[in-house]
């Protein structure tokens, strides 16, 4: 009868991910691969930073994150939010193509992708929150 989430169970792999990212950052930093990356001196430094942030976020979630139940309605809301987000990506890609045709967009690929990922996360989050307040 219970439809509980897997919250709290997938923590181990997040710690592993943080560890892998940090080790990768150290390796890249050691071989001095990639310079001036997203405001960091090197790509290795950036990866170390990301790894530490993942580690910190997962650790903080352990203390502060509320146990949330995922039931059939929230799954449905998530499905709709995913569809809206997908539509956003398609529209955004179209706008970028047109804008690039009018005037060339000069932006580092890494920066563009980071903006895009932030945008996707934001759109999904906002859509989910809005639709969660409706019955769906």
């Amino acid at each position: 009868m219970k439809r509980q989430t897997k919250n709290g169970k997938g923590r181990a792999w997040k710690y592993w991910l943080a560890l892998v990212v940090i080790v990768l950052g150290i390796v890249l930093g050691h071989y001095n691969v990639g310079r001036e990356f997203l405001g960091f001196a090197s790509a290795g430094n950036w990866l170390i930073y990301v790894g530490v942030v993942i580690f910190a976020v997962v650790t903080l979630q352990m203390f502060f994150k509320k146990e949330r139940i995922t039931d059939e309605r929230t799954e449905r809301v998530g499905y709709f939010a995913s569809r809206v987000t997908f539509l956003f990506v398609i529209l955004f890609a179209f706008v970028v193509m047109v804008a690039d045709g009018i005037k060339e967009i000069i932006i580092p690929y890494s920066l563009f992708m980071s903006y895009l990922i932030c945008g996707i996360v934001l759109v999904y989050f906002v859509t989910f929150r809005i639709m969660n307040r409706r019955a769906v």
Partner: peptide
């Protein structure tokens, strides 16, 4: 085993549950 909001929507008749629910 669901969220409270789901019960609220069910009571209001705004959500059609699955047969299981």
């Amino acid at each position: 085993g669901v969220r409270r909001e789901t019960i609220i929507f069910l009571e209001q008749g705004k959500y059609n549950p699955s047969l299981q629910l």
